[in-house]
């Protein structure tokens, strides 16, 4: 399977071994993001990196485990429940003058979002390049929900993931 190198900027200590070993110069960029168009996937940079900052990922991710409709329905209902909690906590955080309560409501807002996101992953939206995500984007592109819908952004994602 064809691979590409990706670098975790948080782990990278700029030891620069990857710059010496890369046969194509793909690791040497002004924004520190490995240039995928140059990377030939040899894996030498990942092997040389003393900080474990480089991962080799497939150039094309595998199709995800298929999700059963029944599971998606149940998880969607749960995502909706977390959305309702986020909405409620966020408005209470704004309204209240009690300092402690405001912090607690902020925490619940953040927490509800994280749970909702995690549940969405398991409801078929694990991989941004996966077919459920792509189908959703295309449906929105063909039927934008309103005039101010970010159509341009949607098209750019579809374009970027073409062939992945």
């Amino acid at each position: 399977m064809e691979k590409k190198a990706v670098r975790n900027l948080r782990l990278c200590t700029k030891d620069c071994l990857c710059l010496y070993v890369c046969p194509t110069g793909a690791t040497d960029t002004e924004n520190s993001i490995i240039d995928v168009s140059r990377c030939v996937g040899c894996g030498d940079c990942a092997a040389a990196c003393p900080s474990g900052a480089i991962s080799m990922v497939p150039a094309v991710y595998p199709e995800q485990q298929e999700k059963k409709e029944e599971v998606c329905f149940a998880l969607n209902a749960l995502i909706e429940a977390k959305a309702e909690e986020e909405m409620t906590a966020a408005s209470l955080a704004r309204k209240t003058e009690k300092v402690g309560l405001r912090r607690l409501m902020k925490a619940v807002t953040v927490s509800a979002r994280l749970s909702g996101e995690d549940l969405a992953r398991e409801a078929g939206y694990m991989l941004p390049q996966g077919s459920p995500a792509l189908a959703l984007l295309k449906a929105l592109r063909d039927n934008p929900p309103s005039d101010d819908f970010p159509l341009n952004e949607t098209n750019r994602i579809i374009e970027a993931f073409k062939g992945e």
Binding site: V6, R7, N8, L9, I33, V57, C72, F73, A74, L75, N76, A77, I79, E80, K82, A83, E84, E86, M87, R113, G116, E117, D118, A120, R121, A123, Y125, M126, L127, P128, A133, L136
Partner: peptide, 26 residues
């Protein structure tokens, strides 16, 4: 209930999750 189309806020969660997915892939 799960059959309904997702509300805007739930859709927002789906998309912020996909944003995180991209972040993980750098």
């Amino acid at each position: 209930d799960g059959l309904r189309a997702l509300s805007p806020r739930a859709m927002s969660m789906v998309f912020s999750n996909l944003a995180r997915g991209c972040q993980k892939q750098y």
